[in-house]
Simulated assay, not measured.
Amino acid sequence: MIRISCLLFEGFVLLDMAGPITAFETASQCGVPGYSIEILGSTTGNVTSSSGATVGTIDFRRTQGCDILLIPGGLGVQNRENYAHLLPFIRSVAENGCKLASVCSGAFLLAEAGLLEGRTAATHWREAAELARRFPSINVDAESLYVRDGNIWTSAGISSGIDLALAMIQDDYGFETARRVAQILVVSVNRPGGQSQHSALLELVGGDNRFNEILIWARSHLNEPLDVEHLAERAALSVRQFTRAFTATIGIAPAKAIERLRLENARTSIEAGARSLEQVARDSGFGNIDRMRRAFVRSFGVTPQAMRRHLSPDDSAEAATDQIR
């Protein structure tokens, strides 16, 4: 069983802790040893979250060690007094070879501990500029939902903490376990268009079929040609055989499956704060923003511009652009 310690400080965000912890907890329902979880704080007692809810903790000095140290984010990072005394402990955990994981602004604690120098790290897009300003040696990634650099994992925050946990579960117990955890969890987030809260890839793959590998590969090569001819060649089938077998197994045509993967990639980039929709369209394989816009309207009922406006309601310039288009 893998030991997880979640380290709290005053003013942490409750979901940054609860989301990943619930994902790790759920893994034990999937036929693997799973995780043992302890919640640490400055003392044995209660730590108050930014919402005012309290969580019981044990003194971090009393822990018997861990394999993963998870650090949530929260407004509490704005006051160094909330966590300065925890930094030596974080360093000692790193020196013992444990995995380190931060959610949202929890990356600031890893940075303060000197563990992100020369590394790539993710944080919430609203915090990215400040993290880069205070720690110029860090390659701050404001686009990705999560980043792994060696034994350090960082994520964009809030619900992406669950994405981070799923990736770590896959690393520990394999893709099938991560897929089963994702199916058990129901993550309800108010996103425009009412799109699915599951990963498009996790919804498409299932069981032991020969097209899982192709879909997993395709998600990592979205900016490359992924027409049915290329996919059929990779599967060592004729186009007709591939199309028929893929549709029968997966439930939708190959082109539609690839579009769903591209839509998810584009959507998560926008949610992470990407400022260039043209770049999002290229990276996701749509080629240009007009093709991406049509796909968004068809699948989500909103344009990429409207989705970004929903996430950044004060961005009046983008609102004007969306009205023109």
Score class of each variant (00 low, 15 high):
Glu318Ile: 12
Thr44Trp: 03
Asp283Trp: 01
Arg267Gly: 02
Arg148Cys: 04
Glu81His: 11
His310Glu: 07
Ser102Asp: 02
Ser49Phe: 05
Glu130Arg: 15
Thr154Arg: 00
Gly76Ser: 02
Glu127Thr: 06
Ser238Val: 07
Ala165Ile: 05
Arg126Pro: 04
Ala113Val: 09
Arg267Gln: 00
Val187Met: 14
Asp141Glu: 13
Gly73Asn: 03
Arg62Glu: 13
Thr123Val: 14
Asn265Pro: 02
Phe12Val: 05
Arg275Lys: 14
Ile270Val: 15
Thr303Trp: 01
Met292Phe: 05
Arg180Asn: 06
Asn46Gly: 03
Gly251Phe: 06
Cys98Trp: 00
Gly74Leu: 07
Glu127Asn: 13
Gln183Cys: 04
Ala295Val: 02
Leu311Cys: 00
Ser284Asp: 03
Asp227Ser: 14
Phe246Thr: 02
Pro313Asn: 10
Ser28Asp: 00
Gln29Arg: 11
Asp163Met: 01
Ala257Phe: 06
Glu233Phe: 07
Leu263Asp: 01
Val140Phe: 03
Thr22Lys: 13
Pro313Ala: 12
Thr123Ala: 11
Pro72Ile: 06
Leu115Glu: 06
Asp141Met: 00
Glu130Trp: 06
Val55Cys: 02
Ala53Leu: 15
Leu70Gln: 10
Gly287Arg: 02
Glu278Lys: 12
Asp149Leu: 04
Pro313Met: 02
Asn96Ser: 15
Ile324Arg: 05
Val205Tyr: 07
Gly97Tyr: 12
Gly206Asn: 05
Gln323Ala: 15
Val189Gly: 12
Ser5Tyr: 01
Ala129Glu: 15
Ser50Trp: 01
Ala200Pro: 00
Ala295Asn: 01
Thr249Arg: 03
Leu100Pro: 01
Gln195Lys: 13
Ile152His: 04
Thr120Val: 15
Val32Gln: 04
Phe135Ala: 05
Lys256Phe: 00
Leu237Thr: 06
Glu278His: 08
Ile324Thr: 10
Arg293Asp: 14
Ala142Leu: 06
Ser312Gln: 15
Leu87Thr: 02
Glu25Thr: 10
Glu117Arg: 14
Pro20Asp: 12
Ser276Arg: 08
Ile214Gly: 08
Ile324Trp: 11
Arg119Cys: 09
Met292His: 07
Ile169Met: 04
Asn212Tyr: 06
Arg294Ala: 14
Ala113Met: 03
Arg210Ile: 04
Ala245Trp: 05
Met1Lys: 02
Gly157His: 02
Thr268Ala: 01
Arg80Lys: 13
Ile39Arg: 08
Ala306Phe: 01
Thr120Ile: 09
Gly207Ala: 05
Ala94Gly: 08
Ala319Tyr: 07
Leu8His: 08
Arg244Gln: 14
Tyr146Pro: 08
Pro72Cys: 05
Ala248Lys: 10
Leu40Met: 03
Val77Met: 09
Ser199Leu: 00
Ser137Asp: 15
Leu86Arg: 11
Leu15Cys: 09
Ile162Phe: 11
Arg294Asp: 13
Ala27Cys: 05
Ala245Val: 00
Gly45Trp: 12
Ile324Ser: 15
